[in-house]
């Protein structure tokens, strides 16, 4: 009888132990769930903030695109950094390049000589930059490169007094 009582007591103690363990585990699980939820919310907030203030490719994003590049100086922009020479026209010691930026979808005119002189960079029908002193090379503002853009270069003995010209370089 005594042995039976002891056995029952042990059984009850074991059940209590199991119940306690289950409760502890349940509490831990709830805590973990709460923590996981908090962590998820925190990460979500961080990601929203990150993508809002530092969008993907910020470092490589184009300075402008097509018509938003109009009248913009390419110097110091991403547009010049990826620009390549779409067309080159040579005349005497000078050459004019129709430069095209695929990132900005914009063209600009670039005129260079073998030594400093009076130079001009023209985007035909749009705008000509006349160097205000002797330069080794000059460029003008960009223009929307969605369509065909033509450029010319000029060189001479003083500002706007040009004697050497390249023909239209279109791209």
């Amino acid at each position: 009888m005594c042995a039976l009582l002891i056995k029952k007591h042990h059984h009850w103690e074991f059940k209590q132990y199991l119940e306690n363990t289950r409760r502890i585990l349940q509490n831990e699980e709830e805590k973990m769930k709460k923590n996981l939820l908090r962590l998820t919310i925190l990460l979500r907030i961080l990601s929203v903030l990150t993508f809002t203030f530092f969008p993907i490719n910020t470092a490589f994003a184009a300075t402008c695109s097509s018509s938003s590049c109009n009248w913009m100086d390419p110097s110091g922009t991403t547009c010049w950094n990826d620009a390549y020479d779409a067309v080159i026209h040579y005349a005497s010691t000078m050459w004019n390049i129709n430069k095209y930026s695929p990132g900005c979808i914009a063209n600009f005119s670039y005129t260079r000589n073998t030594s400093s002189t009076w130079l001009a960079a023209e985007t035909v029908g749009i705008y000509t930059y006349n160097g205000d002193q002797r330069y080794l090379y000059v460029w003008n503002n960009m223009w929307d490169g969605t369509g065909t853009i033509c450029t010319k270069g000029h060189m001479g003995s003083s500002q706007t007094n040009y004697t050497v010209h390249t023909t239209s370089a279109c791209a």
Binding site: S75, Y129, G131, D132, Y135, L136, Y137, W139, N140, N141
Partner: peptide, 13 residues
């Protein structure tokens, strides 16, 4: 010497 922002620009040495 680089001069820019005048509707274009130029570089001289």
């Amino acid at each position: 010497v680089s001069v820019s922002g005048k509707g274009g620009g130029g570089v001289l040495i």
